[in-house]
Structure formats: C-alpha cells, structure tokens
C-alpha cells in the first residue's frame, strides 16, 4: 500500500510542478514505483517539465469519465524505471473532475504504486479541493517572499481543516547571498511564522531553468545544486536522516567580523 502526497502552495509560480517532477524522479531513482498526477486541468505543465508532452494519449479526465482504463492513460517514463505520469486534460476545466472521483483514483493507484504524487493547481478553489481529496500527506512549497509565505499559511490552515495533518514545508528558490545581507527571510524566520516541519530547502539555481528547457528533471543532474537539494529531500521522504545544509552560513563568521569592525556587511 503506497502513499498519496499532494504538493501544494496556494500561490502560483513557486515551484509546485518542478518539485513534483523532481521528487517523483528522485523517488523512482531510489527504486520506488511512483506515479505523478497533474491535477491542473486546463493549465497542464507537468508533462512539459517532465519532457513527456509528446506521449500523451489519454488524460486524467478520460480516466475519471471512464473513456479509458487507468493503465492506458499512464505514460511510462522510459528514462527512469518505475516512473509514470498521468497528465491533466488541457481542453477541459477543473469541474470536469470531482473530489470523490479523485479519492477513488488515488485509492486505486496506491494499491499498485509506492508513491502517488499529486501536482496541485494554484488557488484554493475546485482544483485544490480535487487535488487534496485523496491525499494522505501534503508538502507545502513556498519561496522566501511575503506573498508566498502568506498563501502557504492559508493553505496549511485549509489542509488541516480537511484533516490532512502535519504538512511538511519545502522552501524553494532560497538566495543565500540575499539571506546573508539580510534582504531575504531565513529558513528560521519562515518556520517561525508557519510553525510546521521543514522537509527541505532548494537554493535558487539556474540549472532548474536549463533542465526544464530540456525536459530533464534536475534531480538527475549530479552537478545541480537544486538537484542535490531534491535528492536530499527524496532521501528524507524515505526515512533517512539527512542534515539540513545551512546555505546562508558559509560566510557568516567573516560577515560578523566585518560588522564587528564597522564595515558595511557584504
């Protein structure tokens, strides 16, 4: 019996889809049979981020409407053993699927897969309700910005109201240089405000854009900083104790010394 995990954020553009793609690929690389479900009906993107856009035949709406069997709609990722994608429909809207249908689908999929990762659309309306309906757990993605943290707080409240307890936080696009000069909230600041457990921190990394351009998740790129962060999260999901790397700490002693002597902090 597998686990259904929804990846959500409230705010758009913080990296839900990228996170879903990377964690899914990471789990598959660790030998776990994983399926990714894109629930952003009408605005599907997980397919392009995964580089599987040319292989779509059936989609999520076809499955819930009974046009095809689940197996027929699942796209097998030939690069990563055990990784599958169930794409969203592009020409329908969020109301084409109901929470009850999602619950049934998730229950069916977790019989066969170790992990079912659900890429949630932005917002708190129907699409969000569908995405969380069958979820056992939730990962909340945020960036160190007031708008994203505020929306994350709202989402955490809504998850708890829907009996999805103890969501875990992923802080995306952290800029260590900005944290060091006091122009970006630290991880501790964000945890202090949101009061949930941290699952991982992804540094801002241009490799994400490059890998998305190519349709190859960064988690498989050994040289990418963000890829390493995603690999660490994957291992934490599987129960390993991986220490958090303090991305901003590298020059902190040096900076403090400079401050002590009255220089403007770098």
């Amino acid at each position: 019996m597998g686990e259904v995990i929804v990846i959500t954020s409230g705010k758009g553009g913080v990296g839900k889809t990228t996170t879903t793609a990377n964690l899914g690929t990471g789990l598959a690389l660790q030998g776990k049979k994983t399926v990714l479900i894109d629930t952003d009906i009408g605005l599907r993107n997980l397919d392009v981020v995964m580089g599987l856009e040319n292989r779509i035949v059936y989609d999520l709406v076809d499955v819930v409407e009974g046009t095809c069997r689940v197996k027929q709609a699942l796209i097998k990722d030939k690069r990563f053993d055990g990784l599958y994608l169930l794409p969203a429909a592009q020409t329908r809207d969020k109301n084409a699927v109901s929470p009850a249908q999602m619950e049934k689908l998730c229950a069916e999929l977790k019989e066969e897969f170790d992990f079912v990762l659900i890429d949630c659309p932005a917002g708190i309306e129907q699409g969000f309700k569908n995405a969380i309906a069958g979820a056992d757990k939730a990962y909340v993605v945020t960036t160190p910005e007031v708008s994203a943290v505020r929306d994350a707080d709202r989402i955490i409240g809504l998850l708890e109201a829907n009996d999805i307890r103890n969501p875990k936080l992923i802080v995306n696009r952290l800029r260590p240089d900005m944290v060091r000069r006091g122009d970006m909230m630290t991880i501790d600041d964000i945890l202090d405000i949101l009061a949930i457990d941290l699952l991982g921190v992804i540094p801002d990394d241009e490799n994400i854009i490059i890998s998305t351009n190519r349709g190859e998740p960064a988690v498989a790129d050994s040289k990418s900083q963000a890829g390493l962060a995603y690999r660490n999260i994957t291992r934490r999901i599987l129960g390993e104790e991986i220490p958090f790397i303090d991305l901003a700490a590298r020059h902190s002693l040096f900076t403090r010394m400079k401050k002590l002597f009255g220089f403007k902090p770098a």
Binding site: V179, D183, D189, I193
Partner: peptide, 12 residues
C-alpha cells in the same frame, strides 16, 4: 533595518 525583518513583521 534589514528588509527581511520588515517582511517578517509585516507577515506576522
């Protein structure tokens, strides 16, 4: 005052 402190206060 650091801008991140302003952000945190406003958020709270």
């Amino acid at each position: 005052e650091n801008s991140k402190d302003i952000a945190k206060e406003r958020l709270k």
